[in-house]
Amino acid sequence: MAGFAISFLISFYVFFLNILMTSLGMAFTYGVTRILNLAQGTFFVLGGYLASVFAWQIGLAFGIAAAAAASLAFGPLFYLYVKALGRTELEQLFATYALLLIGEGLFKLVFGNGDYTTASLADGLGSVEVLGQQVPYSYLWGGAVAAALLALMYLLLARTRAGLYMRAVRDDAEMASALGINVREVGLSASALGILITAASGAASSMWQAFTLGLSGQILVYAFASLVVGGIGDLLGVVAASAVISAVRTAAVFLYPQLELVAIYLVVIAVLLTRPSGLFARHARLA
C-alpha cells in the first residue's frame, strides 16, 4: 500500500513538473502581452532537445544550464515575430499556430525521429530509497530547478522595477502606456521570461522525459487544461491548477487509464461552467 502511494506520488510529481512551467509561461506571457502562444509547448520541447544534445558534450548540469541560457534568446525573437505578423489577438494566435508547425518541422529536420533524453546521464546521480521505493535524485534536482524558477519569477515580479512594469501592463496596458511605460519593451521581456522558464524546465525534464516529435502538441493540451482551471490571469492559480490536473491525470492513469483525457476535460468543463474565470479566482471583475 505504501509502495503504491509512493509510486502514485512520484508519477504525480513528475507529471506536475512536466506541465507546470509550460502552463505558467503561457499564462504569464498571455497576461502581459495578450498573445496566447500555441507554440509554448514547442519551447518546452526545444529545451529538452538542446539539453540532451549539450549534456553529452559538456556534462549534465552544464548541458541543462546551457540549454536554459540559449533559450533566453528565443523569447524576444518570438515576441518580435508575433508582433510583426499579427495585429489582432486572432492574427497573433494564427502566427503562433504557424510557429508550432514550423517548430515541429525544424525538430524533424535537425533532430530527426529519435528520442532525446539525458536519462542515462541522470541515472548516474543515484537514487534514494523512500518506503521501499527508489526515488532518483534527478527528480529532486528537477524539483529544485522548478522551485528556483518560481523564486526567480517571484523576485522579479515583486521586487524589481521591470516586474512592477510587467504587473502594470498586465492589469491595464492602456493605462500603463499612458503613464509612460514602454509596453513593447515590457512585452518583450515578459515573453523572454515566459519562454525562459518553459524552456529551462524542458531542459530539466530531459532527466526523465524522452523528447520526440509530436510532444509539443501533447504538452499543450495539458497546459490548456491548467490555464482554464487556474484562470489565465492568476499565476498562483495556474500553479495550483497544474497540480490538480496532474492529480486527476495520475489518478485516471492508475485507476482507469482509458479515460485519462476524458477525466481531465470533464474537470475543465465543470470548472468553466461553474467558475468561468478559474477555480481560484477571488472575485469576478466586470469589464
Partner: peptide, 25 residues
Amino acid sequence: AVGIKTRGIYYSLLSLSLSMVLYGV
C-alpha cells in the same frame, strides 16, 4: 448553450474541451 457562459479564449478552451471529451469517448 454552454459556450454562452464563456468568451474569448475561455470559449475556445471550452469548445476544445468538449471535443476532447468526445474524442476520448
